[in-house]
Design a protein around this nucleic acid. Structure first.
Lengths: 346, 346
DNA sequence: CGAGGTTTCGGAAACGTTTCCGGGAAACGT
DNA sequence: ACGTTTCCCGGAAACGTTTCCGAAACCTCG
């Protein structure tokens, strides 16, 4: 068997110089042809392409971006909460698609909601000179984001609001969506609506909680029905069981994040209460419609968010980075599937 | 408001030369210090670090990897079917985690099962000189993979078997898993088991179909119950409805891919047959346990697959690329949740 | 037909780093 | 004390490309 590395080592990399020699032209001309610049005689263009093909020449983007005036690397970076989370990966996909249309590649990393890790990712990405950065900010690395921005790299923040100079943001109207959901439940006659929320350090968690409160429109909310700082489906399940065990249990639940919604569903199903306690979740999730009852949700459109974010970033990369920050707010839609339409049982 | 780009443009990038001048040492010494090489006097190391800190020096990985002997870029690439697909993204996450431990970054792309796109991705990745490649091969770009391999970049293929020199693969024992599932159904007394499969161009689809046939152990399979080349949940739903409409409908369904399983669930629920027709799916999916009945599946472990693939790749990158291809086969496990345990109704 | 302008091309410098190499100082052995 | 080895260090070359600049060739027009 032939050992590839040896073979590869033997045969030196074919460079523009080689192409130039074989085509009988200057190095500069080869560069012009490869980059598709105008102002080269047609026959030379042909000769260069032919030589390149014969030699199996491959353009080296590393060397290219080192010398190039704009120093572009053709790469953007995406800092997600977790690439395996459905919201993140739908966003990722949308970004990839728009980036691909511009021949850009996407580097990704998961911060796991950890500011330290976010900082680390931002750092390694910028060392690699990415052309732009899309981040779901944990909130704890804003200084670094500002630094990156100052250093010249365009930045777009998604999902969470961040107030930084010349950093665009794309968010969802969390507060309105949450408020409307809670109002629906109250309109149905529910008076005791439990709340399940993520860490208060996360902007969306705070907004959705605010919406929950606003939805009550002056009505008192029982503190015992509120559980915040819940980080997983298991924790959510546990919390719901605890709340339902109390002496004045809720007749409805508002779960402010998709994992928490799933935990709530699990708890209700285990207790056989899925048809008696109403449930509305924030953020849609796959198969929510197939459960019984179907889970009503305040849906966001991660693909739309990703698309807008990518467009904003590409705009800044392409030309006009000299414009103030823009905040885009994407609306949410309520999807009625049954669980949110259950009337109160007393 | 200060316009960042101007500011950034004004102040030239601080380079190793600047650090060297400020520390009063040679350029080579700065390089040695930054790269943590031994053989530099302690006080010089200190001076260099101090100067670098004062000047806000940032190491340029692009320039570094251009000159560096091993030409490593600290980046690996991952070609998935679709980053938004749960199987792909779980794999992605596992790869990211192991890569991160070695300080490697991950570039990703979605081939959408399209060989053309796979080729394109492989091409752009290698132009960027990634240190290694992990691919879910469509099967139509094997020549390109071999070329990449010959050019010296380590390659690991996942999920689908590929026979290439010095290309490791990590697959699942599709055939055994499918066969066992079908046998379970037959043992339960089912005689008419429908089959739903993906495109035959995909290795896993062929293997699972083979397993389905083998599971019948000589018993005749009714061609009318077999549907292959199904590409989406909708198509699967349609196919199942069609089959159940026939004069001799199946009493059980084996769906050979997660999207198809979901389509089958949808069809059965719509027809109100979810408790009468047995169903086993290949590949687990989120919330399969929450449906009623719970969906029994032949589960694979995408995280395990990703972990192994990443380890194989890192091994080749690190040192011994001079070893023959290694094929790792990860076992599947059957997860009984109810839908696969429904006895035949005649 | 010649002056002036435009186009096309190649040599050489530059991008920011790593690595090669050679020189000087220190350490060692005799 | 002197030759030899070892150790640090800095200058310069190199990585593969893009861009600057000047030379040559080609037009255009009075």
């Amino acid at each position: 068997m032939t050992l590839i590395p040896n073979e590869a080592r033997r045969r030196r990399k074919v460079t523009m110089r080689d192409v130039a020699d074989r085509a009988g032209v200057g190095l500069a001309t080869v560069s012009r042809v490869i980059n598709g610049k105008s102002g080269v005689a047609a026959d030379l263009v042909e000769r260069v392409h032919e030589a390149a093909r014969d030699l199996g020449y491959r353009h080296d983007l590393t060397a290219s971006s080192l010398r190039r005036a704009d120093r572009r690397t053709g790469t953007i970076a995406l800092v997600l909460e977790d690439v395996a989370n459905p919201f993140s990966s739908a966003l990722h996909r949308a970004v990839e698609d728009t980036a691909h249309a511009e021949n850009l590649l996407v580097l990704t990393g998961s911060s796991d909601e950890n500011p330290e890790r976010e900082r680390e990712l931002i750092d390694t990405f910028t060392l690699r000179r990415v052309d732009g950065l899309i981040v779901i900010p944990t909130g704890g690395a804003d200084t670094e984001l500002a630094a990156v921005r100052r250093q010249g790299t365009p930045v777009v923040c998604v999902d969470r609001l961040v107030e930084l100079d010349q950093v665009d943001t794309v968010t969802v109207d969390n507060r309105t969506g949450a408020r409307a959901a809670v109002q629906r439940l109250l309109d149905l006659g529910h008076r005791r609506v439990a709340f399940l929320g993520d860490m208060a350090s996360i902007w969306t968690a705070r907004e959705r909680y605010a919406g929950y409160l606003e939805g009550h429109a002056g009505r008192r909310v029982d503190e015992r029905l509120v559980r915040r700082e819940i980080r997983s489906a298991d924790a959510a399940e546990h919390a719901i069981r605890e709340i339902l065990d109390g002496d004045e249990p809720p007749t409805a639940v508002f779960a402010a994040q998709n994992l928490l919604t799933i935990g709530a569903v699990r708890a209700l199903q285990r207790l056989g209460l899925q048809d008696r306690v109403a449930l509305i979740g924030f953020d849609d999730f796959p198969l929510a419609d197939m459960l019984s009852p179907g889970v009503s949700v305040v849906a966001q459109d991660p693909a739309e968010i990703g698309l807008i974010a990518a467009r904003l970033l590409l705009g800044r990369i392409a030309d006009d980075d000299d414009r103030p920050a823009r905040h885009v707010v994407v609306p949410t839609t309520y999807v009625a599937r049954g669980s949110g339409e259950i009337p109160p049982t007393d």
